[in-house]
Design a protein around this nucleic acid. Structure first.
Lengths: 168, 168
DNA sequence: TCGAAATATTTTATGCTTAAAATAATTTGC
DNA sequence: GCAAATTATTTTAAGCATAAAATATTTCGA
């Protein structure tokens, strides 16, 4: 066995390793951001052009689509990871436009239930179909057999970040 | 060898495969978005709390940090993947606050050169150091030996999406 | 050279986003 | 039973983001 003068098998890392990890983490973050920005920008553009709709509005409908009996309004900011104040005007406009309804709860007058209308559901299905095919088009060049691998790694990353955010 | 009744080895895909790929692509997109949103939200929060600064402002300084002689203003929207109109007020405020200068070119009066000031450079270095350690903290739980693999996959993804955007 | 096309930048209108404060209703603890 | 804490939601102020139109300047081509 060689001299074990430095670098014990696990942590702590020496300076050079630490530096390298730092750089890799920064690169990872920049790649992540670049991928998301590219895809998000294109999806937003198409939503606007094809449907005169925005992604945040679509996201709200997507949450409600799987909840036939509606959702407590307060669930939306949690699921969509946005602030509550942010949703107020978005929900307002979706109600105005007839895509959803907002009904005060009879049990607790602070609470409101939001629910998709029939027309909202129809519009959503139409847009969701396009959304899926746009995504397929954008990602078509990515090898199908590597999709699950990447999803798994991102799941792991998400878990790691979440843990780091919850603990401190 | 079993009957080769359906599914030729490569494309085209049959309906079930196509459906599965669709779902995987959607999941990939949602994971990507979730990871980015989580990290971005935390970085933004810390920039605000620690430095009363925003990420877009930091991003501009980061571009200028490696350009000792400054950058043509028009380069910024390209490098940062944002619209030109968006940058006007951000650059305005960075100039106001003394982090950068904006000098009209003598050769072409349409063009302006933006350049970091000494104070801007100092402030940037301080913030960049924190930015790196925040990122390291958030990503600490992710195995260091898997970083490069994930970066590689994201590079590939980015290339694929870029190609798809450039061609049509 | 002179008008048209191209380029760099700003302005405008609209909408998303957050944090923090405000409002309103309910629950809890004494 | 009632004041205080909690919860749900909206409002406000500030800033980021886009697209499209406007402005100013330069370049190109007949």
């Amino acid at each position: 066995m060689a001299l074990a003068k430095e670098s014990p098998p696990v942590s702590p890392k020496n300076g050079a390793d630490q530096e390298a990890e730092y750089r890799a983490q920064t690169r990872l973050w920049l790649r992540l951001l670049a991928c998301t920005t590219l895809i998000e920008g294109e999806l937003r553009r198409r939503f606007r052009e094809e449907f005169d709709f925005t992604m945040p509005r679509f996201d709200v409908l997507a949450q409600l689509d799987r909840e036939p009996s509606g959702l407590v309004l307060g669930e939306l900011p949690k699921r969509l990871m946005v602030s509550a104040g942010n949703l107020t005007p978005i929900v307002d406009r979706l109600v105005e436009d007839g895509y959803i309804t907002r009904t005060p709860s009879t049990l607790d007058r602070r609470v409101q239930i939001v629910c998709m209308t029939v027309e909202g559901r129809k519009a959503f299905r139409r847009m969701a179909k396009s959304h899926g095919s746009w995504l397929a088009e954008l990602l078509a060049g990515f090898p199908a057999d590597k999709l699950d691998g990447l999803i798994g790694k991102l799941d792991e990353l998400k878990g790691v970040v979440r843990d780091s955010l919850e603990k401190p």
